[in-house]
Design a protein around this nucleic acid. Sequence first.
DNA 1: TTGCTGTCTATGCGTCGTGCATATATATTT
DNA 2: AAATATATATGCACGACGCATAGACAGCAA
Lengths: 170, 170
Amino acid sequence: MTEQRTENIVGALALALSDALLHGVSLQAPEPGQAAAAITLLRHEPGMPIETLRRALGLSHPGTVRLVDRLAAGGLVERRPSARDGRAVALYLTESGERSCTAILATRLEHVTRALAVLNPEERRAFGVLTEKLLASLVRNEEHAYSVCRLCDTVVCADCPVTGTLRGIV
Amino acid sequence: MTEQRTENIVGALALALSDALLHGVSLQAPEPGQAAAAITLLRHEPGMPIETLRRALGLSHPGTVRLVDRLAAGGLVERRPSARDGRAVALYLTESGERSCTAILATRLEHVTRALAVLNPEERRAFGVLTEKLLASLVRNEEHAYSVCRLCDTVVCADCPVTGTLRGIV
DNA sequence: TTGCTGTCTATGCGTCGTGCATATATATTT
DNA sequence: AAATATATATGCACGACGCATAGACAGCAA
């Protein structure tokens, strides 16, 4: 019973945090939804094809193509022919897209920082350790990892626990 | 710098958890989106008017009216005249709506439980304490509380930290 | 009471994102 | 060389959404 109370609170915190993050991040992106995640993923891995992006975002094929259409029309993303695969498109951020990405990551970081502000240094450290353990156990495969890390800042997150888990799986 | 790594991981976990929760919960609801949250909110507070629901879900007026239309057409929700306010509608779950709500809450609980399974009892307790502290500090006002707790199980969550904070504010 | 303002609900309308089905091009296998 | 699989693009129809608006009622003022 008391166990379930903890589970309930954890679910509420996850919802509250991701609500705040997604809302804040959408304001930095050209449109709500997965546009912000698409942008940060492309900084994460420049040249990513549409199909990989699609799997990370959990959208349909046409939906992803149209999203890229809109991002390209807005001057944030550029389509180039892929060097390795003649069928594929290699997606790159433009300069404007890079600026948008920086704003998105800053907003995300700011929201999480504000949320963690009530914890003292020891508590924050303890929370970080537990969070890392939870996150590492949650990732199922590479596709899921792309999705989970779709809004991450890869520069900050050296030795990412998610990729660490994947190395263990593969 | 290492500080930011913690923030990054916390953001990723929040996203991963809420993704999983929202997806699982949507499968128990008649449609994706905020339908599941609408159903659980109505168990939380039977007789809730559309406007309160709208604020908790973060939708537009017409969007909420249409959502209630679809839920009513599906036999999950019932509109009744409000006893106190002649303009307002009092929303209630039908029997079928109650069953759907039970399935939604069970799915949510199951997902969080599975996520917390890697922690041993002491870790889980510590994580629960820190989570509660974070959640309590995050809630701004009553409207926000409805939103944060929109998928909660009020039976399980006796002495909810969110309502506790609100009592402190008000 | 009468009248004014604010709130709650409902709906017509136009827009736009979405997915299905399909078409085309290229890669990979047989 | 043929067959199959994969990556991208698009025509089409559906549906959710928000804007603007309308109608009903509450609450307050004169």
